[in-house]
Design a protein around this nucleic acid. Structure first.
Lengths: 200, 200
DNA sequence: ACCTGAACACCGTTCAAGT
DNA sequence: ACCTGAACACCGTTCAAGT
């Protein structure tokens, strides 16, 4: 890579980070090129699609979340690990408003520049979920795909101006739904079953 | 209203329904005017904002959902009513892909043409929720605002191509999180408490 | 090798001119 | 009263021409 190209690439990425932080993942590419004082073609040369730009922007964050999941797997209880990681995933997408929509599309599209990163994230989540399930601490009727979808839904919620303040609370609710005692689901509530056994 | 104006209005609405069903709530207004064989200014005259158009498009559906909530309040158990209505809300937004985003924005903005309809929907939901809470069948740490947010999140999920097939399952999960036995939340799981009482 | 920006085909929104 | 469509200020994307 030529030195001037390298310089353009780096500068473009720095400006894009600012603009996407300000305006969200659907910010004007033209505006990014303009603010980077670079021809529009140069942006397209380095980042052929918007998703390629987002991938370059978010790569380190994705890697950090994967590392974080591995850490939590040994440092925390299965329950805490999953809940903490879930919350950190949502917090991450919140830094780049609107990024969750291309992410949910990308995980279904192997051609997308964001595909690998999203699959990696889903894999990390699946491991934390499986661990909790094996310990009898999480519902067994959901899998990594469901977990990713729930994270996406919560991330979307956090992106909406009005619901953002409630998001934390709703993350709790979803987390508690996943991390429910196995005996409480499926089937009747535990209380009735305990009552039955007491009665017999 | 002049007869030609009335004709334009009705035709515009019919075409818009088709186009929005096909392409989602962010369909091109220009395209709608074109397919209705009407000047673009005519569309803007009748529907000054996109939300005004959506409101006209969805009004009857909103009213049906409100009526439905009132019906369920007397015809079904508190639990079934809330779960059924929640599912019908999601199914409704699914008919007009992408409509949930303007709706979540509108509920915070009294100036929006969609505001009243969304508030009405939220009120219906709040009533079903309160009834379940009073019967001790729903968590008491959420309110109508949370419920609306959860419905929105699930609706968004159903709109995403990849996650749509899972949406039904995830609605179950969220519904069960809301409609959990009061004794299971907040506080420690019921099982431990039962065990304690058995041990003493 | 890389950069540039005009060109093309689209938007949403407004508003002078028509009937 | 109502309709029309040109005009304006934006997009994303491509690509011939430059260095």
């Amino acid at each position: 890579m030529r030195v001037d190209a390298r310089r353009n690439y780096d500068h473009l990425l720095a400006v894009a980070r600012t603009v996407v932080t300000e305006q969200g993942a659907d910010a004007s590419l033209r505006d990014i090129a303009r603010r980077a004082e670079v021809g529009l073609g140069t942006l397209y040369r380095h980042f052929p699609t918007r998703e390629a730009l987002l991938e370059a922007l978010l790569r380190t964050s994705f890697e950090e979340l994967a590392t974080r999941a591995a850490e939590l797997e040994t440092s925390s209880s299965a329950t805490d690990a999953l809940e903490t990681w879930l919350r950190e995933c949502v917090a991450f997408t919140h830094e780049y408003r609107g990024v969750i929509t291309p992410m949910t599309a990308a995980i279904e599209d192997p051609e997308s520049a964001l595909h690998a990163s999203c699959v990696m994230l889903r894999t990390s989540g699946t491991q934390l979920l499986t661990r909790a399930q094996n310990a009898g601490l999480a519902r067994t009727d959901i899998d990594g795909v469901d977990l990713f979808a729930l994270i996406a839904a919560l991330a979307w919620l956090s992106d909406q101006a009005g619901t953002a303040p409630r998001a934390d609370h709703l993350i709790d609710l979803v987390a508690s739904a996943i991390l429910t005692d196995l005996n409480t689901s499926p089937g009747p509530p535990v209380r009735s079953r305990s009552t039955e056994s007491l009665g017999s």
